[in-house]
């Protein structure tokens, strides 16, 4: 039953992807290896679309991934799956807001999770890079583009549209 499995996998992502939208990338990357739901290439497209459409990136990614896997119901099931753990936890935490936030246990555990999550995203980024940068032109384009993204603060949408135009012009 694809919907049950889809729900379970996205529930797990909702439970373990701590720190926001980009953090879901390594988890979705794991799914490309585990199932034939969508490819790593699809994942890069999903990231681009999720960044340049309205709504929280993490939710957009779940909807897109679910839709690619099992159509409209897949999109709905994956989105509810990714959201449910945090809804349950937030309602639970709401009552003891201050105590949770200032608990030294929470602070130290989160301080340990954050660097690990950065490493996860870095690795997923490198894996995706190997797929996207395949020849000299795309390597040159990627390098130049990174410097631009790093030094000029423009919105992600600007860069995504620009990279699409350059992709067409350079016939990548």
């Amino acid at each position: 039953m694809i919907y049950g499995l889809l729900f379970w996998e996205f529930f797990k992502i909702g439970l373990f992807a701590i720190g926001g939208g980009m953090v879901t990338i390594p988890f979705l990357f794991d799914l490309t290896k585990k199932y034939n739901w969508f490819s790593a290439e699809d994942l890069t497209n999903m990231i681009a679309v999720s960044q340049s459409t309205p709504g929280p990136v993490g939710v957009n990614m779940a909807t897109y991934a679910g839709f690619q896997t099992a159509g409209v119901w897949g999109g709905i099931v994956a989105t509810f799956g990714v959201v449910l753990p945090s809804v349950i936890i937030v309602i639970g935490v709401s009552k003891l807001l201050g105590r949770y936030k200032d608990s030294p246990w929470v602070i130290e555990i989160m301080a340990a999770i954050r660097p690990a999550v950065v490493a996860l995203i870095l690795l997923a980024g490198v894996e995706l890079l190997k797929l996207s940068v395949t020849d000299r032109i795309s390597a040159l384009f990627g390098g130049a583009f990174f410097l631009m993204v790093y030094f000029f603060k423009k919105s992600p949408i600007f860069y995504i549209v620009l990279s699409a135009v350059l992709g067409v012009v350079l016939k990548l």
Binding site: M22, I47, L128, F145, V149, V165, G167
Partner: peptide, 17 residues
């Protein structure tokens, strides 16, 4: 072609992030 370009651009955004 557009998506091939986007895929490279997105990697730059991820690495910056």
């Amino acid at each position: 072609h557009a998506f091939a370009g986007i895929r490279v651009g997105v990697i730059a955004l991820i690495l910056k992030e």
